[in-house]
Write a protein that binds this DNA or RNA. Structure first.
Length: 454
RNA sequence: GGCGCGGUAGCCAAGUGGUAAGGCGGCGGUCUGCAAAACCGCUAUUCGGAGGUUCGAAUCCUCUCCGCGCCUCCA
């Protein structure tokens, strides 16, 4: 059994992962801003971190998994105002949709799913402390973080302050001491929801909620902080600055970031209008295939979406699921047991190597193959063991629509069986073809003729 | 402009110094009346290109071409 290694964005190296205190792992993954439906890019992130969590749990580590909802933000307000609704109706609606979609992908519920809107007092406290410590200042009802005061700014993203030039891409906000300073607290404009604070009516800035909520539920130092790689800068960089300014200790030991889902090699994003929501995807592909697809490539590499790739995932997962159709035998030769055990070990070793799911899946498929040729209960159990991490087998498969009644099908099968006994193969094949036209596939097995939907 | 990632067979995809995992597809076979499913075998002398280091390189170095990302909200 190998040690667990993860690639740490902070050090740009694979590092041995050892939990902080006695087998406990505190992990925080940045959640969504619920102002629209969840898309495939989000799904990749949460499926990947779900596998990391399940894997660590299988390794007998006690994981506390925290994932927030940023339920108050400019985009939510924008949407709420355009629909003439309070912001929380918009965020609550999309939180519900997110939970529905992500559950179908077999992602376990977080242990804690904190909402920003329910942590305003804690956020105000944190901002107050940052001001006291000289890391933040109030200006016209807003509070900004004083980036230059925090040495080490840029250590996560590898950016140098001198190289980040104000201008074209960075909005120059009057009132800030330095263009990189970011809002901890934003003064509310008219028609915007607000909370009362020592600095007047306003709401939290974007980054502070993650610092406050992660440390509230996990502690000053997280073991793992995860998210999409687009969050590295500025979001996670800012989280580090705020948190470490606040506590004086290291905020997080392992920073893990997943790569993007792309379409034609380009990032799936709203602005390019090339994104697919899970809702849309599920109309064409099963959640089981989607999960398989999302794990088929290493999590840090780009994953290119295409209908063909999803179709292949559909085929593969159907094949995997067919193991349930086989009657198991209890006897297993030692050599086979050894093979199965080695494959399972290889499976976990692959995951230990910075979550190499491609290799892990290949071992998993080998186990399926071994089971198909041995029908061994022992091997079957190894498959179920591996599936506790991958979680393909319990998910919804492809939707099957029955175009004719079961009685009708059985009648046709009987008719065909009679024809086959009489060696009237022409008729038998005609019946099989007829059923095939209606999407029914026949399989002649030693146990008789079976049928299934194509 | 700064920083970073990737280019491996028809396709997807592992592999950071020891001589190219795995899957899909295709081809051949076992089974079958024929199929289907499953299983077995075959399917890259070669890793974008050019140099270099080395006994040895997909893996290290230099240059170069192509694609992408971050530097602004973004999983």
């Amino acid at each position: 059994m190998k040690e667990i290694y993860f690639y740490n964005t902070l050090t740009r190296k694979k590092e041995a992962f050892l939990p902080g205190q006695s087998g406990k792992v505190g992990m925080y993954v940045c959640g969504i801003t619920p102002y629209d439906y969840t898309h495939l890019g989000h799904a990749r992130c949460y499926v990947v971190f779900d596998v990391i969590r399940r894997f660590l749990e299988e390794k007998n580590l006690k994981v506390k998994y925290v994932q927030n909802f940023t339920d108050i933000d400019d985009k939510i307000i924008e949407r709420a105002n355009s629909q003439k609704k309070p912001f929380y109706e918009v965020s609550q609606f999309f939180i519900k949709e997110y939970k529905k979609d992500i559950k179908r992908l077999g992602v376990k519920d977080p242990d804690v799913s904190p909402l920003v809107s329910e942590h305003i007092p804690e956020i105000i406290d944190a901002v107050k402390k940052l001001i006291e410590k000289g890391f933040a200042y109030e200006k016209n009802g807003s509070v900004y973080f004083r980036v230059l005061k925090f040495k080490g700014y840029g250590k996560l993203s590898g950016k140098k302050i001198e190289e980040l030039k104000p201008g074209a891409r960075v909005e120059v906000d009057e009132g800030k001491e330095h263009f990189l300073d970011f809002a901890l607290w934003k003064k509310s404009k008219e028609n915007e929801p607000f909370w009362k604070s020592p600095w007047g009516c306003g709401r939290p800035g974007w980054h502070i909620e993650c610092s406050v909520m992660s440390m509230k539920y996990i502690g000053s130092t997280l073991d793992i902080h995860g998210g999409g790689e687009d969050l590295i800068f500025p979001h996670h960089e800012n989280e580090i600055a705020q948190s470490e300014a606040l506590t004086g200790v290291s905020f997080c030991r392992f920073w893990l970031h997943n790569g993007f889902v792309t379409i034609n090699k380009e990032k799936m994003s709203k602005s390019l209008k090339n994104f697919f929501t899970l809702k849309e995807i599920f109309e064409k592909f099963s959640p089981r295939a989607v999960r398989f697809f999302l794990l088929s490539t290493h999590y840090r590499d780009p994953l290119d979406f295409s209908p063909d790739a999803l179709k292949e995932a559909e085929r593969m997962t159907e094949r995997i699921s067919r193991i349930f159709e086989i009657k198991q035998v209890s006897q297993t030769q030692d050599a086979i047991k050894k093979q199965a055990q080695d494959l399972l070990e290889g499976f976990y070793d692959a995951l230990s190597d910075d979550l190499n799911t491609s290799v892990a899946i290949s071992r998993f498929l080998k186990l399926v193959k071994l089971f198909n040729s041995t029908k061994s209960e022992f091997v079957f159990e190894k498959i179920l063991n591996a599936d506790r991490v991958l979680n393909f087998l319990t998910l919804e498969g492809k939707k099957k629509v029955l175009l004719m009644s079961e009685e009708e099908i059985l009648k046709k099968i009987n008719e065909r069986d009679r024809a086959r006994k009489e060696k009237n193969y022409e008729l038998a094949d005609k019946i099989r073809e007829e059923l095939s036209q209606k999407g029914i596939l026949l399989e002649d097995t030693p146990q008789g003729t079976k049928w299934r939907i194509k």
